[in-house]
Simulated assay, not measured.
Amino acid sequence: MQSKNKTVMRSMEILNLFINHAKLTFNEIIELSGIPKTSVYRMLQSLEEMALIDKDQHGKYSLGILFLRFGHLVSERIDIRQVALPSMEKVHKATGEAVNLIIRDGDESVYIEKLQSIQPVRLYTTIGRRSPLYAGACPRAILSFLPAQEREDYLARVELIPYAKGTISTMEALRHSISEARNRGYTKSFSELEDYTAAIAVPIFDHRGDVVAALSVAGIETNYTEETLDDFIALAKEAAAEVSLKLGYSDS
Rank of each mutant, 00 (worst) to 15 (best):
Met1Pro: 15
Gln2Gly: 14
Asn5Ile: 14
Lys6Tyr: 12
Thr7Ser: 13
Met9Thr: 14
Met9Leu: 15
Arg10Asn: 14
Met12Thr: 15
Asn16Val: 15
Asn20Gln: 15
His21Gln: 13
His21Thr: 11
His21Trp: 13
Ala22Gln: 15
Ala22Met: 12
Asn27Thr: 01
Glu28Arg: 04
Ile35Gly: 08
Ile35Cys: 08
Ser39Arg: 09
Tyr41Gly: 05
Tyr41Ile: 04
Leu44Ile: 11
Leu44Glu: 10
Met50His: 02
Ala51Gly: 00
Ile53Lys: 05
Asp54Pro: 02
Gln57Lys: 09
Gln57Cys: 03
Lys60Gln: 13
Lys60Cys: 08
Ser62Thr: 10
Leu63Glu: 05
Leu68Trp: 01
Leu68Phe: 06
His72Trp: 04
Val74Pro: 13
Ser75Phe: 08
Ser75Asn: 15
Glu76Ala: 08
Arg77Val: 01
Val83Asp: 10
Leu85Val: 05
Leu85Lys: 14
Leu85Gly: 07
Ala94Thr: 00
Glu97Phe: 02
Ala98Pro: 09
Val99Cys: 06
Ile103Trp: 04
Ile103Thr: 09
Arg104Glu: 09
Gly106Pro: 03
Gly106Thr: 04
Glu108Leu: 00
Tyr111Trp: 06
Ile118Lys: 15
Leu123Arg: 02
Tyr124Ser: 01
Thr125His: 03
Gly128Ser: 01
Arg129Ser: 13
Ser131Phe: 11
Ala135Val: 12
Arg140Ile: 02
Ile142Lys: 05
Ala148Arg: 14
Ala148Val: 13
Ala148Ile: 12
Gln149Pro: 02
Gln149Asp: 15
Glu150Ala: 14
Arg151Asp: 10
Glu152Tyr: 09
Asp153Thr: 13
Ala156Met: 14
Ala156Tyr: 11
Ala156Ile: 07
Arg157Phe: 07
Val158Pro: 12
Ile161Asp: 08
Tyr163Phe: 14
Ala164Thr: 11
Ala164Asp: 09
Lys165Ser: 15
Gly166Asp: 12
Ile168Glu: 10
Met171Trp: 10
Glu172Pro: 03
Glu172His: 12
Ala173Val: 00
Arg175His: 14
Ile178Pro: 12
Ser179His: 09
Ser179Gln: 13
Arg182Pro: 02
Tyr186Gly: 08
Glu194Val: 01
Glu194Pro: 00
Tyr196Leu: 06
Ala201Gln: 03
Val202Asn: 07
Phe205Ser: 06
Phe205Asp: 08
Phe205Ala: 09
Asp206Pro: 13
His207Asn: 15
Val211Phe: 03
Val211Ile: 08
Val211Asn: 04
Ala213Lys: 06
Ala214Ser: 11
Leu215Phe: 06
Val217Ile: 01
Ala218Arg: 01
Asn223Tyr: 05
Glu227Ile: 03
Leu229Asp: 04
Asp231His: 08
Phe232Lys: 10
Leu235Tyr: 04
Ala236Thr: 11
Lys237Ala: 05
Ala240Asn: 12
Ala240Val: 07
Gly248Asn: 14
